[in-house]
Simulated assay, not measured.
Amino acid sequence: MVFLFRDKSIANIFFLSVLSIVVHLHFFSSVPVVITDQHDGLISMVLTSYIAGQSQTVLFVLYHIVVLLQALRLNMVLNDQRMFHQYTYMVAMCYVLLSAILPQWCSISSALVSNSLLIWIFTKLCKLYNNPSPKTLLFNTGLIVGATILCYYPTAVLVLAVLFALTVVRPFRLAEWLILLMGTLLPFYFLFSWLFLSDRLAGYGNFLPRIRVGLPISHWDTDLVVSLAYLALLFLTGFYYWQVSMGRMGIQIRKNWGVMVVMLLIVLPVPFVFKNAGITASIMSLVPLATFSSNAFSGPKRLLFPNFLFWLAIGVIIYHNWHLV
C-alpha cells in the first residue's frame, strides 16, 4: 500500500479518500461525535450551534472532509518548502492513517479544527527566512496566532512556539519580537474593547485559557498504551531517517525542520496543562507527528519495513474496533 503514495499523482487524492474511509470503518457503526466545551473558544461555540445537531451522514462526511483537507494542505506546504527530497503524498497518508490510531481523535472537536490554523501558522513561519519584509509577515503571523487562541484557548502555547521559531529562523531583533507580540495581542484588544463598550468586561475571564496541570486521564487502559506505543515507534523511526537525510538539506530547510521540532515539543504537553483539554486535545500534535513519522515510510529504499509499519497501524486500528468484528 505504501508505494501508492510515493508518487506525485493526482490519483493519490482518491487513494487518500479510500484510506480515510477504511481506517474509519467504525463510523458505519457509530458516527463521529461532536465534542465541545463552553470554555474552549469560538470554534466550540460554532460546533455547538451549527454542527452538533446535524444528521449522522453530515457528521460522517464532515469529519472526512476536514481530515483530508488538512492532510492535503500539510502535504502541499511541506513539499513546496522542499522539506523532502521528492514530492510524495507520504505526509498526507501518514496524517490520515494516524487520525484513527487514538479513539479520542475520531471525533469532531475544536482541537481537530484548530489543526488547520496550526498548519497556516507553520506556513507563515517557513516564509520568515530571508523575507524582504519580515515585519509585515511577523505582524500577520501574530494576528493569526491571536485569532487562533480566541478560536481554541489551548492553542495559547503557540505563542511560545512562534517565539522559539523566530529564534531559530532569524537573528534576534527586539523590534521584530515586539511587532509579533503586537499582532498577537491585537485580537484581544478588540475583544476587550467590545466587552468594555457592551458593559460586560467582568466576564473577560471566559475568553482566557484555563490552566490546570495534571494528567488528562484518570486511568491507563490497554487501548491507550497500545496506541501510544505505536506512535512512539513510528515517530522514533521517522526521526532516525530524518537525521540520516539532514546532511543533504540546505540551511533554510533545516530551519523549517527546526520550527517543526519546536512545534512538536510545545503542543505535546497541551493535554497536561489546560483544564478539560483531555486526550482529545492531543490531536494538535498530529501535524508535527505526521510530518516526522512520514520519514519512516519514505526513508527506507525497500518497502518491506514501511509496509510492516503500515499494516501494524491497521492492526492497531482493528484492535481498537474489535467489537465491530
Rank of each mutant, 00 (worst) to 15 (best):
K275I: 00
V325L: 15
W105Q: 07
F274H: 08
L78N: 11
N75A: 02
M260I: 15
K255H: 12
H85R: 11
N79H: 14
D80S: 13
V244A: 04
N307C: 06
I65Q: 09
V46M: 09
L62G: 04
I65M: 14
G250F: 03
V58P: 00
T280G: 01
Y204I: 14
Y129L: 11
L233H: 06
I43D: 03
T280D: 13
L304S: 10
L181V: 12
S44E: 10
L69S: 03
Q70K: 11
Q38M: 10
S110G: 15
P209G: 00
M76C: 01
Y89F: 14
L98D: 03
V46N: 00
P300R: 07
I13T: 05
L186F: 14
V270M: 02
P32C: 08
W220D: 08
R254N: 12
H26A: 12
V157W: 04
I253K: 09
L138M: 06
M45P: 00
L125Y: 04
G238I: 07
I217E: 12
P209V: 02
S49I: 00
M90P: 00
F292A: 03
T123N: 13
T36Q: 05
F84D: 04
L112V: 01
L191S: 08
G258R: 09
Q81W: 11
N79M: 02
M182W: 10
